[in-house]
């Protein structure tokens, strides 16, 4: 099989498009690169969506944890504690078992004028169930980072806001939130990187890869088992993830520069990538 043929057959294999059978005997390097790259679609899907959806929830959680009212603070604290204190691997297992136990229900709803049926059995599929777990997990980790940043917002800034007559929502939106985001950004970048790394766990926990549509590591593991040679597929995954990591750093670095653009150069926070948070 030539490289072009391999690309044609397997480039979208992880979505179920293309050749149905995975390569068996005589596995070429091209097939490995293409198929593992195809699996990366899922890693990016889970990581990007969980990050996007998790952001607003994390802000809400951080604000809730920073509230003096017990009734609001305690649930946020517990949520963060449960998802940060337990291994993501176990969370995946537990969520899957819980979703399997759910009764099969269909909920009809209308979106843009068309009728849809949301079914509970989707939750037992990786694309929704695992996404939900990742969403909760990243929200908890991010909320802790944001909470730390909220506590670190300079008092002078808040007093200045009061002096200008800002209060409530306006004060939060104009003063507290931007400063919090700026302070939290380096930590948040780390979180984003390790969230993408955590997506590699999904098909190794309980969520089954339906019709062998898996992520990058799923295919790499498949090749390593087939060829009994770990020296090709795993480095391919590693290269893909390093490229992804560099992409995230570039993206978040640009955002960091924008968040800090009003500060004199030497007071700007630099992004430092530290392996802090692996679940």
């Amino acid at each position: 099989m030539t490289c072009a043929e391999a690309f044609h057959a397997y480039a979208l294999r992880s979505l179920g498009i293309g050749e149905r059978l995975l390569p068996r005997a005589e596995i070429s390097l091209c097939e490995q690169v293409v198929l593992i790259g195809s699996g990366m679609i899922w890693n990016v899907y889970f990581g990007a969506l969980a990050l996007l959806l998790g952001f607003s929830f994390a802000v809400a959680l951080a604000v809730a944890k920073n509230t003096p009212a017990r009734l609001i603070r305690k649930p946020a604290e517990w949520f963060i504690f449960v998802f940060r204190g337990s291994p993501l691997f176990i969370q995946f297992f537990m969520a899957y078992e819980a979703f399997v136990m759910l009764p099969n229900l269909g909920v009809d709803f209308t979106l843009f004028g068309t009728e849809f049926t949301a079914e509970t059995r989707w939750l037992a599929r990786a694309w929704l169930g695992a996404l939900l777990v990742l969403f909760c997990n990243t929200s908890a980790y991010t909320a802790e980072i944001f909470y730390g940043a909220l506590r670190a917002v300079p008092r002078g800034d808040l007093e200045a806001a009061d002096a200008y007559g800002l209060s409530g929502w306006k004060k939060f939106r104009r003063i507290t939130f931007p400063t919090m985001l700026r302070l939290a950004w380096p930590g948040y970048t780390n979180e984003a990187i390790f969230l993408f790394h955590a997506t590699a766990l999904i098909f190794f926990s309980s969520f089954p890869a339906f019709q062998q549509r898996g992520d990058a590591l799923y295919y790499a593991n498949y090749f390593a088992d087939r060829t009994f040679n770990p020296f090709v597929p795993y480095p391919i995954v590693a290269v893909y993830f390093v490229v992804l990591t560099l992409g995230i750093i570039a993206l978040f670095g640009a955002a960091n520069a924008r968040l800090n653009r009003h500060l004199p150069a030497e007071r700007r926070q630099r992004l430092r990538i530290r392996p802090q948070i692996i679940r």
């Binding site: 190794f204 390593a224 770990p230 020296f231 795993y234 995954v237 990538i273």
Partner: peptide, 16 residues
Amino acid sequence: VRGVPDIVFFLFFVLV
């Protein structure tokens, strides 16, 4: 360890 998920290393090193 910075750019690559740790689980890749786990699966890789055991075999290696």
